[in-house]
Amino acid sequence: MPDRIATTVDGRRLALGNLEKVLWPATGFTKGEALHYYALVAPALLPQVCRRPASFVRFPDGVEGELFHIKHPPPGLPEWAPTAEIHGKEGTRRQVLVDDMATLMALANLAALEVHVPQWTVDGGRNAHDRLVVDLDPGPGVGLPECCRVACLVRSALAEDGLECWVKTSGSKGLHLYAPIAPAPGRLVSDYARALAQRLEADRPDLVLHRMARQLRQGKVFVDWSQNASAKTTAAAYTLRAGRTPAVSAPVGWDEVAGCTRAEDLSFTPGQVLARIERDGDLFAALADPGRARPLPPAS
């Protein structure tokens, strides 16, 4: 592979460089391979991030170099990349909207390879969250299999409340569950998520924790309801993660969750994720369908 190529993506000219640069030394995974992955996974990834103000982890010197957590457009982003002014407690800032493949590839070319988005779009705004997210984070002494057990409990509890959910790996230690909802203020979504976590802890105090205190997490799975705050973001489906190896935040099936007995069962490389999409289709496609949204139940 040449180390620099000029190409056209969706009618936009891009000069892709440093393609042979190794970004994940543990496996030799290069920037060119990361760009190739994003080019192929874009049809599945873009519906999950479209119109959502994105933030990124940049690692131009690889995962063993300095990591830059950024919310603003990275230096060198083409002027044609869509952005929006986002108003929050920290003031107003401009953020990138990863709405098309050209923008995704331009960002990847700038080593902004880990993509995070909130549970609302710029069209609806912070008072119109269209997704509920439940972040399952294992404490010391437990791992992904225990997260899977809790995920099944969350799924059943949401179903009792009339909500359907989809699940993906975080690309690290835990799981993320998403339920499409009719637009609702972030405060109400957080209230419902906290009440849900409290309910689950009351039923399974041996396994589930809703409180954030780290000293309480030994042997428990923390149900992080706070990710529904309007200022919070979650790793996007299909994004690469800046870990030791090039892992992906990958959608998985509920049969896989139910059958998980070790972390390796639900750990996927970029190549494996692409093969899964070819074999099984996009397991998160239905999440982006507005017809799936259901009213948020009141917190109880």
Rank of each mutant, 00 (worst) to 15 (best):
D3R: 12
T7V: 15
G11Y: 00
G11H: 02
R12N: 00
G17L: 01
P25H: 03
A26T: 13
A39C: 04
S55G: 13
F56E: 08
F56C: 07
V63W: 09
E64K: 13
E66M: 03
F68I: 13
H69K: 05
H72D: 15
L77E: 02
A81K: 09
A84V: 14
A84S: 12
E85I: 01
T92P: 00
V96G: 08
L97I: 12
D99H: 04
A102Q: 06
L104C: 11
N109K: 05
N109F: 10
A111I: 07
T121K: 01
R126T: 09
A128D: 01
D130Q: 07
V133G: 12
D137H: 11
G139I: 12
P140T: 04
S156F: 03
E164P: 00
E164I: 02
S172W: 13
L177S: 00
I181N: 03
I181K: 06
R187S: 06
R194S: 03
A195S: 15
Q198Y: 02
P205E: 09
H210W: 15
Q215V: 10
R217M: 11
G219W: 06
K220N: 05
D224T: 05
Q227H: 13
A231M: 04
T234V: 15
A236M: 02
R241W: 03
V248S: 01
R262S: 04
G271H: 06
L283W: 05
F284S: 07
A285Y: 08
A285F: 12
P295W: 02
